[in-house]
């Protein structure tokens, strides 16, 4: 009972929080030059990690799909199937997991620190709205840079798959030629939509958790922890919901199949 009340309060709070940010954005209160600056900071910091993660995720999926296809003698489909499975599903989820740590937890730690050292209160007292000055630039920067990083990471998964195929002796060109035969426009659209939504989730959760952190250095640690747990859960939940929606739409209108 207590737990469910807490759950409702957190998610209600997050929705109100994102609404407030949206309203302020539409009132044109966003400092876009700060957003650009933040995007560069976040992007440069996380690019190397995203690329590494993308490569390995692609390779892992290629190994697994290869193993399963061998049982049926359908190795010819390796390129298409592993790329499709990675792009639609495993890729966005795993890379978003890492970004929620790198970008999300970092943002929430930064905001939580500003909160517990009373920097946010200082801004309030000096007559400004911290959401406008601190949160808005960060939330948009995180949305945009997470989205871009996810796209980069997904491209790297394709590359990782190709590299691994070459290692295990599947011709890289065959692998690549097979990709368009399975990966449909619909799948790419799905993975782009997922990437964008995960970017929004990471931004809202980490800003919310950081902004409302209380209680010294322990509070900062707790904010980081709770931010990454919430992020991971929501990413998995929304991944399922989007896949569900996509499959329902495809069945209804019979689109997206070859």
């Amino acid at each position: 009972m207590e737990a469910s009340r807490k759950l409702v309060r957190t998610f209600g709070g997050m929705i109100l929080f994102s609404l407030e940010c949206l309203v302020l954005t539409f009132q044109n209160k966003t400092k876009w030059n700060q957003v650009v600056e933040q995007i560069f900071q976040v992007g440069v910091r996380s690019l190397g990690m995203t690329i590494t993660a993308g490569l390995f995720v692609g390779a892992i999926m290629a190994i697994q799909i290869d193993l399963q296809l061998k049982d049926f003698g359908a190795e010819a489909f390796l390129g298409g199937l592993s790329t499709s499975a990675t792009l639609r599903n495993v890729g966005p989820v795993l890379i978003a997991f890492l970004l929620s740590g790198k970008v999300g937890a970092y943002t929430s730690a930064e905001l939580a620190t500003m909160g517990v050292t009373e920097q946010l209160n200082a801004i309030r007292l000096l007559g400004a709205n911290p959401i406008e000055y601190i949160i808005l630039p960060r939330i948009w920067a995180v949305v945009i840079s997470s989205f871009l990083l996810l796209i980069v990471g997904l491209m790297m998964t394709i590359f990782g798959g190709v590299m691994f195929a070459e290692i295990i002796g599947v011709n890289a060109l065959n692998y690549i030629y097979n990709i368009p035969s399975i990966v449909t426009g619909w799948s790419i659209a799905l993975s782009v939509v997922k990437s964008f939504l995960f970017g929004v989730l990471i931004a809202v959760v980490s800003c919310y958790k950081g902004y409302y952190a209380r209680g010294g250095s322990v509070g900062v640690g707790a904010a980081v922890q709770s931010c990454s747990v919430t992020n991971l859960m929501l990413i998995i939940l929304f991944d399922f919901l989007l896949s569900m929606a996509s499959s329902t739409l495809q069945d209804l209108f019979n689109v997206g199949y070859l």
């Binding site: 990690m49 590494t52 993660a53 390995f56 995720v57 390779a59 892992i60 190994i63 795993l94 997991f97 890492l98 740590g101 790198k102 937890a105 970092y106 929430s108 730690a109 930064e110 939580a112 620190t113 517990v116 050292t117 010294g216 250095s217 322990v218 509070g219 900062v220 640690g221 904010a223 980081v224 922890q225 990454s228």
Partner: peptide, 24 residues
């Protein structure tokens, strides 16, 4: 307190990346 946040963040990031690489 900034350093504590930093440590927690780094821990999550590095561990997650190591898990993916170790998994490979």
């Amino acid at each position: 307190s900034a350093a504590v946040g930093e440590a927690a963040t780094q821990a999550v990031v590095r561990t997650s990346l190591s898990i993916i690489i170790a998994d490979f």
